[in-house]
Design a binder for these strands. Structure first.
Length: 441
RNA sequence: GUGAGUGUAGCUCAGUCGGUUAGAGCACCAGGUUGUGGCCCUGGGGGUCGGGGGUUCAAGUCCCCUCACUCACCCCA
């Protein structure tokens, strides 16, 4: 035999073995179901995009993290960094798409990061976006769908943090720090959770924001009360900033809608410290955090009214979010939120006793499969012992034995692997019996 | 890109002050059981101790280099 190649995979990528795939498909199934119940339609786009499509949309940092190479014809291309930019390209390319366009997209994206906990180079995102509506109603739909999905997955506790880029602009404006410092300011205050108030202050000063402006910013950020109070107090601070006033007004409208959607206040947080890293956001921004496993955000998104204009020549208002599939799965695993026995789609294994009874086993498998029961027919060379072992290892709940005795009498044995109970019954009753057994919880 | 940590069986890890033939649990295979899994019992296979160099009578153990992986920072799902 030739010298074997070390079986390895590229850093930050993963194989998903069947047992993991079953769990992933379970989560994806629930997410997709909610997407469609909210009237979103599916979309897929290519893995590879032209470099000009990807570059310069997200900001300097993200540009650096985008996989980039040249093809054999020396064309500059890259792997998609997210699903929002490809969507924007699609909207511009197919102007006939009816607006508002509501699409969902579940595909992997790539980032040339150093992997760590809950962070990969290849990972799935589940995006929902509404293109062509400037109304806060569209943002409310997105936030409602986030709430609905996390509920459907039985998340015990989560907070959807919400802020508005225009409010952040307003704060920058009235602080006297200079509007071109907005990005620096956002980055600093975004770290509030990690480094605390004093840390943020140092960070701001370090980023060459004048001390009086820093004090003013921190004062504005420290408003308290429920979100209505805080919006009003913030409005007072921002009364001399037209962009700030606009942000406040939109947020008030958004929260009014969210009330009508009956989303519990306890899941929502108007959070002035939220800023989000990507450059393209222009309006409300939102992300979801959980407290228990400390893992960063599990969803993230916002309004980006100017991004599509880069491809189209005309601006389309748009808003949407990413549902972070990988982190949701990580959280669900750590909190053991998956239903038990979620190991294999196979419902029954039909064993093969020997060559003489093989036709009988095949007939049984055919019948079960025709009846819509997910049936594995044993194709290996082990005796019954090994076949039961296989069913056990895979977590297949039922095993059929069809040996010479059963064949002669037109009967089968059905064994329940969980209870160990085994029963002989006429073959004619098998489908009904299995359907009954499989319907049990 | 910056900093720290860890590399011993398929996996998780032990290995004393440097000392004879490197161990355990789990997993795997076979048998106990020629028509039945899990649990139990018996046996078995499996290791360039990440790689290279050095010190030493002697290195898994000490030193240097290198590679890989992990965690944190930055940023993000």
């Amino acid at each position: 035999m030739a010298k074997k190649i070390q079986p390895r995979i590229y850093k930050g990528t993963r194989d998903f073995l069947p047992e993991q795939m079953v769990k992933r498909n379970y989560v994806i199934g629930i997410i997709k179901d909610v997407f469609e119940r909210y009237g979103f339609e599916p979309l897929e786009t290519p893995t590879i995009e032209l470099w000009e499509t990807l570059s310069g949309k997200y900001g300097e940092e993200a540009d650096r993290l985008t996989y980039r190479f040249t093809d054999r014809g020396n064309r500059e291309v890259g792997l998609r960094y997210d699903l929002t930019v490809p969507l924007s390209r699609v909207v511009a390319m197919y102007p006939q798409l009816p607006k508002p366009f509501k699409r969902y997209q579940i595909q992997p994206v790539w980032r040339a990061d150093k992997p760590q906990k809950g962070r990969f180079r290849e990972f799935y995102q589940c995006d929902v976006d509404i293109v062509g509506s400037a109304s806060m109603l569209a943002d409310a739909e997105i936030i409602a769908i986030i709430f609905e999905i996390l509920n459907a997955l039985s998340f015990p506790q989560f907070i959807i943090r919400i802020n508005h880029r225009k409010i952040l602009s307003g704060i920058t404006e009235v602080s006297g720090a200079g509007l071109d410092n907005e990005l620096q300011i956002c980055r600093a205050i975004d770290k509030m959770d990690k480094i605390g108030l004093e840390g943020v202050k140092q960070e701001l000063l370090q980023r060459a924001i004048p001390a009086p402006a820093v004090d003013h910013i921190l004062e504005m950020l420290s408003v308290d009360g429920d979100h209505k109070d805080r919006l009003e107090k913030t409005a007072q601070y921002l009364k001399n900033s037209s962009v700030g006033r606009q942000g406040i007004q939109e947020m008030q409208e958004l929260f009014r809608y969210l009330e009508w959607y009956r989303i519990p206040q306890s899941c929502l947080q108007f959070d002035l410290y939220l800023s989000r890293g990507l450059d393209y956001y222009t309006g409300p921004i939102y992300e979801t955090v959980v407290r228990k496993p400390r893992i960063g955000s599990i969803t993230g998104g916002g309004r980006y009214d100017n991004l599509i204009g880069l491809f189209s020549g005309q601006d389309f208002p748009a808003t949407g979010t990413t549902i972070g599939l990988e982190r949701i799965i990580t959280v669900m695993e750590e909190l053991t939120m998956f239903p038990p026995h979620l190991r294999t789609p196979v419902q029954v294994l039909v064993t093969v006793f020997d060559d003489a009874t093989l036709p009988y086993s095949i007939e049984i498998a055919r019948e079960l499969r025709a009846a819509g029961i997910r049936t594995d027919l044993y194709t290996g060379k082990s005796k019954l012992r090994g076949q039961f072992g296989l069913a056990n290892d895979k977590g297949i709940p039922f095993v059929i034995v069809a040996g010479p005795d059963e064949q002669r009498n037109h009967r089968v044995q059905v064994k329940n692997m969980a209870t160990g109970e085994q029963r002989s019954l006429p073959r004619s009753e098998l489908v009904a019996r299995l359907r009954h057994l499989l319907a049990q919880p």
